[in-house]
């Protein structure tokens, strides 16, 4: 009986490892959709009026992200320091890169929230309702109106 239970336990573990690997493969699968298509889908529903497109240098300043840490990107933000609206899309490459970028954006949001907290309540609540999601090799960061719609458009485009 003990022998049977041991074998059963080992077998169950092997099956579970197989399932785990299969899940990771599906989950971490990178989208083959072109960046431009994802970008268009997201921008069309985001409140991006008046936002200016930023370059890689600006990304480096904001997030300490080097150019070789992502393959493509879009960064839109306001020229006004009191306007917290922002949209970033990164084509990261793999799951590790997605986590790396997401981590740096999290730190950026934390820093920015600390600036507005207790001083600009509207901006602060908009910041706290931000969307940060990493899927299929892409990262989306959005602060603005209708965040759920933007997140849905992002997911559908991948």
């Amino acid at each position: 009986m003990k022998k049977f239970l041991l074998k059963l336990g080992e077998l169950v573990c092997v099956v579970l490892l197989g399932l785990f690997i299969a899940y990771v493969c599906v989950q971490d699968n990178v989208s083959t959709e072109p960046f431009e298509k994802v970008k268009e889908a997201v921008v069309s529903v985001a409140s991006a009026d008046g936002l200016t497109e930023r370059d890689a240098l600006e990304i480096k300043k904001k997030l300490s992200l080097e150019g070789d840490e992502y393959t493509d990107f879009l960064c839109l933000s306001s020229d006004s320091v009191m306007d917290v609206r922002e949209l970033m899309i990164f084509k990261a490459g793999d799951a590790d890169a997605v986590r790396n970028i997401s981590g740096k954006i999290e730190a950026y949001v934390k820093e920015k929230t600390a600036i507005f907290e207790g001083y600009a309540p509207e901006e602060s609540s908009m910041l706290s309702a931000h969307i940060l999601t990493g899927k299929k090799g892409y990262v989306l960061f959005y602060v603005g109106d209708s965040p759920e719609a933007v997140a849905a458009a992002f997911s559908q485009s991948l």
């Binding site: 003990k2 041991l6 074998k7 336990g9 080992e10 573990c13 579970l16 490892l17």
Partner: peptide, 20 residues
């Protein structure tokens, strides 16, 4: 954590099995 837990349980069984 799931992967690590799986690994622990499996190797615990293996240790037992070897001893058995």
């Amino acid at each position: 954590v799931l992967l690590m837990a799986l690994s622990i349980v499996f190797n615990y069984f293996i240790g037992f099995d070897i001893e058995y």
